[in-house]
Design a protein around this nucleic acid. Sequence first.
RNA 1: UCGGGGGUGGUGUAAUUGGCAACACACGUGGUUCUGGUCCACGCAUUGGGGGUUCGAGUCCUCCCUCCCGAGCCA
Length: 594
Amino acid sequence: MKTDPRTAPGASSTTAREDDQSDNAPDDLTDNFIEEIIEADLRAGKHGGHIVTRFPPEPNGCLHIGHAKAICLNFSLAAKYNGQCNLRFDDTNPTTEDTDFVEAIKEDVHWLGFDWKDKEFFASGYFPKLYDFARTLINTGHAYVDSQSLAEIRENRGNYYKPGIESPYRDRSVAENLDLFTRMRAGEFDEGAHVLRAKIDMQSSDILMRDPLLYRIHKTPHHRTGTEWPIYPMYDFAHGLSDSIERVTHSICTLEFQNNRPLYNWFLETLDVPHKPQQIEFARLNLTSTVLSKRVLQRLVHENHVTGWNDPRMPTLSGLRRRGYTPEAIRAFCDTIGVARRDGRIELALLEHTIREHLNATSPRVMSVLRPLRLVIENYPEGNTDFFTCPVNPEDPAAGTHEVPFSRVLYVERDDFLEDPPKKWFRLTPGREVRLRYACLVTCKEAIKDPNTGEIVELRCEWDPASRGGASPDGRKVRGTIHWVSAAHAFDAEVRLYDRLFAVDNPLAEEHGNDLASVLNPDSLEVLTGCKLAPSLKTTQPGTRLQFERLGYFCADTLDSTPGHPVFNRTIGLRDSWAKIAQKQSKTKQAGRR
RNA sequence: UCGGGGGUGGUGUAAUUGGCAACACACGUGGUUCUGGUCCACGCAUUGGGGGUUCGAGUCCUCCCUCCCGAGCCA
């Protein structure tokens, strides 16, 4: 599932694939083992040369980046082989599902860039057909109504080492089963009174084959069928048959369903349905420093560790979207991680790389100061304003230029000044000349301190008028270039700095117990107010993505921005090799002290 | 003590199906640079272990080790 070169990040600079004629020739190279299976099936004429996949979310939570892997896989496969990918909501459990999630899921899949056309289905839409299938199973002696209690069923199922014991109700007559099941459907019984079970083999070494449940009684109204059905089919019964009804050819699911495959096939064979899909399992996505379990994500929301499913720290698609991630980057990520049957854990750094790669190629640059420090240019005329020309994006000359106002009083980043700097420090320090990006060269003459606190409150500098525009007039070396904003023109805004949600690689590892609070990163969110933003940002539309030069990529928040008052979320910082150098220096320093 | 599925650098995925272990990320070193960004160059694994077949094994056979999933009226 290679990303389409026309939409791939950085496509404008890489034309190799597009120029490659062989790219249009039949691709004899498969990207993964699933494509090998599909191509073998196609060669064998198994499905009349047509494939159908499906993405089957349960509408009981929001989609996350792990789902994105499944979405990209299923839709890309369909696209590659000229097939179709259906969207099917697996809504067989009314107690946990909600129509709000249905809408949210549809929005997320579309946002990711995929379209299911008119092939939008609901397992609940098949309830009548599934009910008929169940009656057929009863009629052919393959299913029975069990009236044991939940505890008895569990007890008699046995365990890994002990076979199960047959239910005393197992040999009820077809007529009695039919009567009971009809009355279950009519709502005559309380929850738990009866269940419908397949009659397979209580001795089976595969526990799933020990007379699995087909239907249970639920009196909870369903988000789509209301109170029409008091009984609901179980996953195993509903899923494969839904696939069959939709004529899905390749039913792709995650590894934990490997155990269910024999049962999946049992239904197809026992009912001898005309279309038999093939279930194929692949390894779900795991990412370091986060969790991709719907249950745990739900806990984060409910225990208020985050502000909601769309908190920018969440690995949900809505969270990533709000954070500033692009669908292109997520697709590129899914493309890069590959598909296999081996369980693993992808480093979050790879996701961060793909978003940087895309944003680097596409984001307009702008200078803003997050932690402002006043800088006064003593030899620059008071009340004067210059305008300097900056490229919108040095990676993309076609993006053009824009004018930035400059004056005597500026703000620069507090982090860019050090009174007593370490070695290899190129930025501001007394007596040092640095470049104000795209503007001029300035030399720091003095740092003014608050007489009481000793805090540095202002830098007094002199500029070299001959360096107007930022060039070095005589070719002298100026290693440091810093960003700035004109104090008189800048405006104040809130900026949120996000970092990884968890402080540990694998938050769900046993060693951490079940205590989310203990593994969360306490610095996952830092809210900065009074940031001095470039005047051009005043009217930023929510959702706009920009690079704040030297700082990182930011996105105007879609929820909290108001007209004239944008709030920015940091998507991801720029790579910071100075931070590495500084860290190394402090380490050697510490080592020296010991 | 059972059944199913896996083990290739720090991470993930490949290897024309028995023929020089490749690509990306990460990391390290150096270079370029008006973003300590980007970009460029170089470095970084003999495939879980033993035995076997073979001219030749990551790929085949065999024994062992190890990890994941499975005992919901969840999906």
